[in-house]
Design a protein around this nucleic acid. Structure first.
Lengths: 202, 202, 202, 202
DNA sequence: CATGAATGAGACTTCATTCAT
DNA sequence: CATGAATGAAGTCTCATTCAT
């Protein structure tokens, strides 16, 4: 039995705190007492708000990934041509966001890989991530901007994998990883993948 | 990291069991008792073999990633031309290996992202993964097989990210993910990235 | 025992609900929230009505046993001859009442056996149960209807024990227990105990 | 998953302590810490021995009632004639045993009335209590010692109820209750119930 | 070499209770 | 009159760890 709406206005602030602590400690090492301390409330208040520890953390994961997905969708909305949209998406996906963001994303995929319910949610989430790419690719092909014989869905899978794969050097802070150069290569890579002429990428 | 060498033959079998259980349950949810039950030994025997729980699990992670790295290096060794080596590496990186393998890899990156000691180890490991790619790219460029202006290291970073990013749809069992088609697109993507003419990929 | 008189009409309905829940769950397993849910009021309302949890439950016990005692006294009042009164009392004590009634009685004796205040109350209650029996026996002896040398009080003790002892097979739902046959034997047993000739029991 | 045999020799002593504490406090108010303190062991030791709190208490109930049943069966075994056996049983059932014994018995019936598994056990237990009575009554009838038309089983039910019903005045310490006089009346009552002539009871 | 007994630390959870409105 | 928010106390339970054999 999950209560989702007990508590007053402080609940939302506390949830944000929970997200922060979760990103820092990881799912299995986030104690009630950690969040309580960070939020300045009693442990029993957390349970009053969220029910159980799992409920709290799952709601935090949902909330955090929801925000991330929305942000990506907005990144696609502001551009006009298909290629512009894809570049926006890639730049957003590789932007030097705060470490917390990347940790939270890895956290989500990690937990989802072991929890059936979150695994379903991960499919929905990944679909939202893929859709802007798929739409842009299809449109680019129709308009003749892109020259490729591959399936747009598979192309999106590969592009997204390229972005997701960057999570690892980021969260492990691999020293060879350089935001700018990687972004440049990733854009070039995507351009050639979609059969765009060098000139068109300007 | 107290003692690592107590016990005899049996120890290695138990370590393999620990790897299996770790891949299934994840680091923070792998109890001494889980491994003890799976291996058919007493909990105190595990402590006799490995010392503490962390020691046991870290050794399991090392062992598992070591095997994986060696396997990748061997995949590169069997081929002759640079592009052949790269295709071997990519095919190996995208091969339909048992789920356990992918889970263990994600496990390693995940844990390394939060543990300083393992984080150092993750840098070493990633370097071993990258090296065969870097070597092949450099050689390909020198031999005039590849036409690219990008830095070989950054190219390797991107290619590896592409492979690593596939971990997510794999471990979360995303339905759109298809081994064969993705491998095909990934190879094509890499080829165009390296400036290889279509004909040369045959 | 702080306040007992807060609240109006609603309070009595809620008290009845509390009795029902108490009979079902038992004293130590009856939570405020159980009663609140069953009665459709807030937990804090219960506290407003009854004070503490103990106050609520003790009042429920008092109320329930009071009703039961009154019912037994009324059973004795309707009959005329001493033996008729005793048969009425026994039949009432062995009637197939709802399970809830028996559970509540056992509940009362059980709790009283461990709580000093309720223990006093249990003495008063048992006296009320005994009195109709004692009165009838004394009268029967005086009138020459009963032939016994035993003390009327001890006879009442035994007869009442016989009735109370049936609580156990009832609340534990022992399969051998049969209302009708047991009632018949109990009546016969009491008759012979009081020295009544077979003919007189008709 | 109930472990029943973890722990060494102290386990049995600790179990006895648990029985004592359970008789004193009652099921729902017996904490691990109560038993731990009384037994001089750590709380975690209790869990090592018994698993959960419920497992500990249920084993204590089983053990205590088992001892009581065996004691009653032995009481019947030492006598020769049916009536002698019955008097032994009744005297044993009404003997001035330590309060703890009566509390434990009421405890068992009380808990069994709300726990399905213990309820089954209560049927088995009650059957063991009844059997010596039933056997003695049947034999007494066959030998012509008893003159009654009632069913032996129902007679046993009534006699046993009479004994069980004494639990209440005992555990609640009702002042009118007197061991000796009640025993005398109970014996007389049973004698007349079974159709025994006054002389034969000597 | 391997194990069982025993324990302490630390976490979640339940629940009555206090307080403001 | 009745309620929701917030909390502290107390208990169970899990689990790694220590120690003797």
């Amino acid at each position: 039995m999950r209560r989702r709406r007990a508590g007053g206005e402080r609940r939302n602030e506390v949830l944000k705190t929970a997200i922060r602590v979760l990103a820092e400690h990881g799912y299995d090492r986030t104690r009630f007492s950690d969040v309580a301390e960070a939020a300045g409330v009693a442990v029993s208040t957390l349970q009053f708000y969220f029910g159980s520890r799992d409920d709290m953390l799952i709601e935090a994961l949902h909330q955090a990934t929801e925000e991330e997905a929305r942000s990506l969708e907005e990144a696609a909305a502001v551009a006009s041509t298909p290629w512009e949209r894809i570049t926006h998406l890639i730049k957003r996906g590789l932007a030097p966001l705060p470490k917390e963001t990347w940790h939270m994303l890895l956290e989500f995929w990690y937990v989802a890989s072991r929890d059936p319910e979150l695994q379903k949610q991960s499919i929905i989430l990944q679909r939202r991530y893929r859709q802007p790419f798929i739409d842009a690719i299809k449109e680019g092909i129709e308009l003749g901007h892109f020259a490729t014989d591959e399936d747009p869905e598979d192309l999106a899978t590969v592009i997204l994998a390229l972005l997701d794969g960057m999570l690892i050097p980021r969260v492990c802070e691999h020293p060879y990883f350089n935001d700018e150069r990687v972004q440049s290569v990733a854009l070039g890579s995507t351009a050639s993948l979609l059969g765009i002429k060098e000139a068109a990428t300007q």
